[in-house]
Design a protein around this nucleic acid. Structure first.
Lengths: 130, 130
DNA sequence: CTAACTGCAAAAGCTTTGCTTTTCA
DNA sequence: TGAAAAGCAAAGCTTTTGCAGTTAG
């Protein structure tokens, strides 16, 4: 556990924003101005392999990371691209039923809801959408 | 509707494999050897804006496209990266309950299951996993 | 001490874009 | 004939990698 690794983990733990790799890099640089982007990505991979953080694969181009590990799902704003956690009642039996139907060994499932956050929603309405 | 656009749409309609942009390009080139990658991407965007195809934003780096438009969900193999359709009973009330909880205007939701397909599952077992 | 890790910079993978020429309605 | 689209190539954005030097245990 190097200093860099610690700073990256702390950055992620103190952010509610599900930052992308580049955003984690910016956060980490506030603490360690010489940290390199490669180090950030390598550590984000190691941390998610070890289960300390979670690598999110949501829509959009960039990957995002999350220090909140237990299963939960996400809500993304199509306009400002913000990502929030969302509580959804567990989908009982989903994975097992898909396993039976498909022959796959199902490891996990991801649910992403997309839409417009309250702020962007208001802007859109003012601009004449819907 | 240009010839290129038609070929791209046909390629997608005749594939079960949820191809990436690059794969669509390869398919289209079998018909139109001089088609360019830029044309393929521009048309994939236009076609998905018009609702004729669907742009998938699943895990992994590359985007995938699907000519099957009605809502359905996906199952992705972590080992060979293949993507299949999967039937899941609709999640009644999900979007509305999230709207009430979050204040978002929810547009859609995506569910992705990930795991190991029957073929890769067998290889993994032979190799001593699990 | 040495295996793991860092910084730096270059490369790689996928997608988008600028520009000029061609095509379609 | 004018607007939309194609081809080509370059650029962009995010992530990965090679290498030489550094550090943690």
């Amino acid at each position: 556990m190097t200093r860099q690794r610690q700073v990256i983990l702390e950055a992620l733990r103190s952010s509610r924003a599900h930052p992308t790799g580049d955003e984690v890099y910016r956060l980490a640089r506030q603490e360690l101005p010489h940290i390199s982007l490669g180090t950030v990505y390598r550590n984000l991979d190691l941390l998610s392999e070890s289960g300390l953080i979670r690598k999110l694969e949501l829509g959009g181009t960039a990957r995002r990371f999350d220090a909140r590990v237990p299963e939960h799902h996400h809500l993304r704003c199509l306009s400002c691209d913000k990502v929030e956690d969302v509580e959804v009642e567990p989908m009982e039996g989903l994975e097992q039923s898909v396993e039976e139907q498909s022959g796959y060994e199902v490891v996990e499932h991801r649910l992403e809801l997309v839409g417009y956050c309250p702020g962007c929603r208001e802007k859109r309405e003012r601009a004449g959408f819907r």
